[in-house]
Structure formats: structure tokens, C-alpha cells
């Protein structure tokens, strides 16, 4: 057991699976000798060789196609897209091809592919590095979208994702990479996919969130507790398909819900959560479902991030509004 950052936990998981399964391959732009632009694959090529961990030409669509072809030959590709804003180049490979293969071939072929990619605001990146585009993939049948919010989950979820026999998009929030440390077991363990976590138990309102917003929700909950408001935090972890059961159970207990996402209002998966709650828990609700999301503009210029990104204060305000409805 050691205190680790989220990115160290990611490296741990990659290391574990390279060791456990000789079919696991890691590739992408600069993931080899360089160890990745964030050091997520640091040391892996030295230990496992260029056959297992290798660089690719600079072409995201090619990387997607490479993953599909290698998976057809029995490998377990763990490909990296350097920043998720570059996913547009490989949308066809991910949702037009990989996500559909099991279905279109009637279950006779499957593609155990993981696409790892950093995203998320708060670190003043240039354009199209930080965009929250999980909603695009979440709307595509046949693929899971996983977003860890802490080092422990990151390792366990990534090991699960690599062992999963269907494609998974695994999104790593850049602001969480090194912002805090947490106990992470040295041994291998898994955290189940498609299963939300109750990060904090509460009785007055359910805050349902994911990614970097989980930290903001915890901050908000600490402050709200001082004011006598007990917040239950649900961390979705897998944003598609949703773990509806855990969400509904929580809201049936607290009778109030606030959805929090970093993505713009029209994006993300917040609307899907609200729809599920409207359909399944409306008789438990004592107030309209609240929503905290970014404004419907293009992701902000670096200097405007603080004014644009949702934060703990926004969550506190929305929770109070919902509780006092």
C-alpha cells in the first residue's frame, strides 16, 4: 500500500495488465520511450519491450484502426488518444466500427479494446485539449465510457476495462492526475464497471456526479454539512451505460437530486440521469431535479476557465435551491 496520484495508479494498472496478459499492447503517440506526455506509460517500454509498448505515427484514425485490427488478431489493445479533443479524428473507428463489431457480426467477433485519453479543464491547456466530450461516446451503443475520480478507482477500473471483452473509452481528468494522493494497494484489484459508488452517505439530497466534479461535490458537501444539510454523493464512475439502480435508490432515500457535470448543459450525461430519475423516481421527488453544468459555449479560452467551469460554490447554491424549494 502506498500513497499514489491518479496517474501513478493508471501506470500501476497498465503495468499489472502488461504483466498478467501477454496479449495486452499499449500504443499511441509518444507512449513508448517518452513514457507519454503525462508520464502515464513511464518505464513500461523499458520493462516490457517495444513489441508491447510502442509509438505510432501521428494519426488518431490510424490508431483506432490499428486497435481494431490488432484485436481481430487476438490482442488486447490499450490505445491512447493524446487528448480527447482529438477524438473527432477517430470517431468512426470508435463508434462507427469498434462499438458495433460484436453486434454486426452476431456475436461471432468481439473487440477487447481500451481507448485511454486525458481530458478536463482547470489546467489552462491550449484549444481542444480539455473539452468534455464523454456525451458523444455515451450516446453510441456498444461501448462503455468510464471516468474515474480518484486514484483507487482509477487503478481498479482500468484493470477491469482492460479485462472487459468489449470496447471501453477510459477518460482521465487532467486536473486529477496529480492534484492529490490516496492509498492505492500494490496488488491487482478490480473495481466493477457499470457500477456507481456512494462516495458519501447523506440524507437530504443526492448529488450525482463524475470526474473532477466529485471533488467539488465533496468540498460543497463539507460546507453544506456545517449548515445542517446532509449531502449524499453518487460518483457514476461509468457514465455509459448508467447504473440507474444506485441513483434511483439514493434519490428514493433523499427525495432530492442535483446532477453535476463539468460538460456544457447540452453535453455530458446529466440529461440522461435526469431522464432516468424522471421516469423512475418522480414520486419520490420533493423538488425539481437540479442541474449544475457549464454554459453552452465552446470550451473557454485558458484565462477564462475559472469563470466558466462549474465548482463547489455552484453546487452549494444549487443544492440549497433544491433543498429549500
Amino acid at each position: 500500500m502506498a500513497q499514489k496520484t491518479l496517474i501513478q495508479a493508471v501506470t500501476d494498472a497498465l503495468h499489472a495488465e502488461l504483466k498478467n496478459d501477454e496479449n495486452v499492447l499499449i500504443f499511441g503517440e509518444d507512449v513508448g520511450k517518452n513514457g507519454g506526455v503525462f508520464r502515464a506509460t513511464q518505464g513500461l517500454q523499458d520493462e516490457f519491450g517495444e513489441d508491447r509498448v510502442f509509438n505510432t505515427p501521428l494519426a488518431e484514425s490510424g490508431i483506432g484502426g490499428l486497435s481494431i485490427g490488432l484485436a481481430l488478431e487476438g490482442f488486447r489493445p490499450v490505445a491512447e488518444i493524446q487528448f480527447f479533443g482529438f477524438v473527432f479524428e477517430t470517431m468512426d473507428s470508435i463508434v462507427g466500427q469498434a462499438a458495433r463489431t460484436r453486434y454486426r457480426m452476431g456475436g461471432t467477433r468481439h473487440l477487447p479494446i481500451v481507448i485511454r485519453s486525458p481530458f478536463g479543464g482547470g489546467v489552462h491547456t491550449p484549444e481542444l485539449h480539455s473539452d468534455n466530450l464523454e456525451g458523444l461516446i455515451a450516446q453510441s451503443p456498444g461501448i462503455k465510457v468510464v471516468i474515474p475520480s480518484n486514484p483507487y478507482d482509477a487503478k481498479g477500473l482500468l484493470i477491469s476495462a482492460i479485462r472487459d471483452n468489449d470496447p471501453v473509452v477510459f477518460l482521465e481528468h487532467m486536473k486529477l492526475y496529480r492534484s492529490f494522493r490516496e492509498e492505492v494497494p500494490d496488488e491487482d484489484y478490480t473495481v466493477p464497471l457499470c457500477k456507481a459508488a456512494v462516495t458519501r452517505e447523506g440524507t437530504d439530497v443526492s448529488v450525482i456526479t463524475y470526474g473532477a466534479m466529485v471533488r467539488e461535490a465533496i468540498k460543497a458537501a463539507d460546507n453544506l454539512e456545517k449548515e445542517g444539510i446532509s449531502v449524499e454523493i453518487i460518483d457514476l464512475r461509468t457514465v455509459s451505460p448508467l447504473d440507474v439502480e444506485t441513483i434511483v435508490k439514493s434519490v428514493e432515500k433523499t427525495n432530492r437530486a442535483v446532477i453535476v457535470q463539468e460538460a456544457q448543459r447540452q453535453a455530458g450525461v446529466g440529461a440522461a440521469v435526469m431522464a432516468e430519475l424522471s421516469e423512475r423516481a418522480i414520486l419520490s421527488l420533493e423538488a425539481p431535479i437540479g442541474r449544475v453544468a457549464a454554459p453552452d459555449t465552446v470550451f473557454p479560452f485558458g484565462q477564462a476557465e475559472n469563470d466558466w467551469l462549474p465548482n463547489a460554490k455552484d453546487i452549494e447554491a444549487k443544492v440549497k435551491e433544491t433543498v429549500n424549494f
Partner: peptide, 19 residues
């Protein structure tokens, strides 16, 4: 999807080589 088979073929080709 015209062209998709080409990038996928590159992946299969690398798989064959690795095997």
C-alpha cells in the same frame, strides 16, 4: 465506410507480423 477497411487492415497486418 469507405477507407475504414484500410486502417483496420494495417492493424490486422501488424497483428500477423507480431504473431
Amino acid at each position: 465506410i469507405i477507407g475504414a477497411q484500410y486502417v483496420q487492415a494495417a492493424g490486422v497486418a501488424l497483428g500477423l507480423k507480431k504473431r
